[in-house]
Nucleic acid binder design. Structure first.
Length: 415
RNA sequence: GGAUAGGUGGGUGAGUGGCCGAAACCACAUCCCUGCUAAGGAUGCGCAUGGGUAACUGUGCCGAGGGUUCAAAUCCCUCCCUAUCCA
């Protein structure tokens, strides 16, 4: 959630910044008005309640002293009616405010380039040079089927479209990649955690998936529980509603989880292959830091994911997302795109975001400094999406006969 | 699924209608004393939010939501969660 005090104080500034993310200024204006109205409604209620409280105290005294309370009772009863009205007004204002506020995205950082879509994203650098093939490289689905690694039909049989099954070396490689990534991240100071793949509404509100993106989530029937779309949700919310001692920061974690996405808006995109599945494996990085340190940790996370690709000898590039392509909760995002020779283009394999205090405000994650409770910064990034890494390995390490060489880094994990 | 006991501040835990945002202890912070692998003493110490330069002060919060009452941590109802026992 954005800082409403800041909005109230520096409306024009916040409005300008958010306009880069295509937020309508009218909506912000409305938010500001509602916020002001709520404040007034609260003051009204609180004054009435204060009167009620003091009258109640008086009432007790009267009783004790055996005085007549009938006159006081009348006053108190009349006040009660006003209080009920005031509460109702306040409640309505609160609901209205929350509805708008929870749907406002995070403010982008200064250094985020302005732009409308992914076409305006800024390439930061390319890492490793794609190798030249003496033949026309195949796309991964062809290689996956030819090697018997992935079976797309049987995935559909078991569930529905966008599900697949990994067999043999395909399955082994998935497992090897998960272990390899977790170990790599551990060595970089990210402590391993294993978390539930089902979370409640509060967790999803904390990290910003709800209330706005419910249609993208798998929800359990008859329960207010959801399958996680990313480990970012359970791992970040580990510290929900906590005040963390400053010495404990930064907290850096890594977790492997399956991820589940309905891909509601993605009809027709990447229908072939395993780029966009409803269920996929991902190793995630999450960090909770003081505001001072979040930029530093952000760079560490980007470097971690990039180095992981280096270790796997996969050419990739770093891209800074422009304002229009930035996710809901992110103030800044660097995507890492891996080279796919079969598709002859770079595709996203990791996305590292700094949400600043946006999630912290929603999830109430704070730290104590000089006796003051301040909001932490939260960051998250994939390192990496396992399925897409497998895709990248297949396409980059393919031989002319369709066989696939295993990257050296994974050999210890396959014996 | 059934039964029972519970859910209180960072932790343990007291508190059955007003003097309770809440004893005591632990932890923590500052200070004092002492002088060396640690003890003693004093003071402070929940969260959120509004007002105020500040001192201070209003409101809400004792699992969640309702209800009774002038007044609820305390009584009533519903739900959630935890522990133990039974199926």
């Amino acid at each position: 959630m954005i800082d409403l005090k800041l909005l109230q104080k520096d409306f024009d500034e916040v409005s300008t910044k958010l306009s880069r993310k295509n937020v309508d200024a009218k909506l912000l204006e409305e938010l500001k008005t509602k916020n002001q109205e709520l404040k007034e409604a609260k003051a009204t209620y609180e004054n009435l309640q204060a009167a009620q409280n003091s009258m109640s105290k008086e009432f007790g005294l009267y009783k004790q002293q055996g005085k007549d309370t009938s006159e006081l009772k009348q006053k108190v009863d009349a006040n009660k009616i006003k209080i009920a009205e005031a509460i109702e007004v306040q409640r309505i204002k609160e609901d209205e405010l929350e509805k708008i506020a929870m749907a406002i995205p995070n403010i982008p950082d200064e250094d985020v380039p302005t732009g409308a879509s992914e076409d305006d994203n800024l390439e930061i650098k390319k890492v490793l040079t794609p190798k030249e093939f003496a033949f026309t490289p195949k796309e991964h689905w062809e290689l996956a089927e030819q090697n018997g690694w992935i079976d797309f039909e049987r995935g559909v049989k078991l569930a529905t479209s966008r599900f697949s099954v990994a067999f043999g070396m395909g399955a082994k490689l998935e497992r090897a990649l998960i272990n390899f990534m977790l170990n790599f991240n551990s060595k970089r100071g990210f402590a391993e955690v294993s978390v539930p793949a089902i979370v409640n509404r509060a967790a999803l509100e904390g990290t910003g998936q709800l209330p706005k993106f419910e249609e993208d989530l798998y929800k359990l029937q008859d329960q207010e529980l959801f399958l996680i779309p990313t480990a970012e949700v359970p791992v970040t919310n580990l510290y929900q509603d906590e005040i963390i001692p400053k010495e404990a920061l930064p907290i850096k974690m890594t977790a492997y989880t399956p991820c589940f996405r309905k891909e509601a808006g993605a009809a027709g995109r990447d229908t072939r292959g395993m780029i966009r599945q409803h269920q996929f494996h991902k190793v995630e990085l999450v960090a909770i830091t003081t505001p001072d340190e979040s930029d530093k940790v952000f760079d560490e996370m980007v470097a971690c994911a990039s180095d992981l690709l280096n270790a796997l000898e996969l050419p990739h590039r770093l891209v800074m997302l422009c304002s229009g392509d930035l996710g809901f909760g992110a103030a800044k995002t660097v995507d890492i795109e891996v080279w796919l020779p079969g598709q002859n283009r770079y595709r996203e394999i990791s996305s590292v975001s700094n949400t600043r205090d946006f999630q912290a405000r929603r999830a109430k994650i704070r730290f104590k400094e000089n006796d003051k409770n301040l909001l932490v910064h939260t960051l998250n990034g994939s390192s990496l999406a396992v399925g897409r890494t497998l895709v990248a390995i297949m396409e980059n390490f393919q031989n002319e006969d369709g066989s696939i060489t295993i990257p050296k880094a994974l050999e210890p994990y396959l014996n």
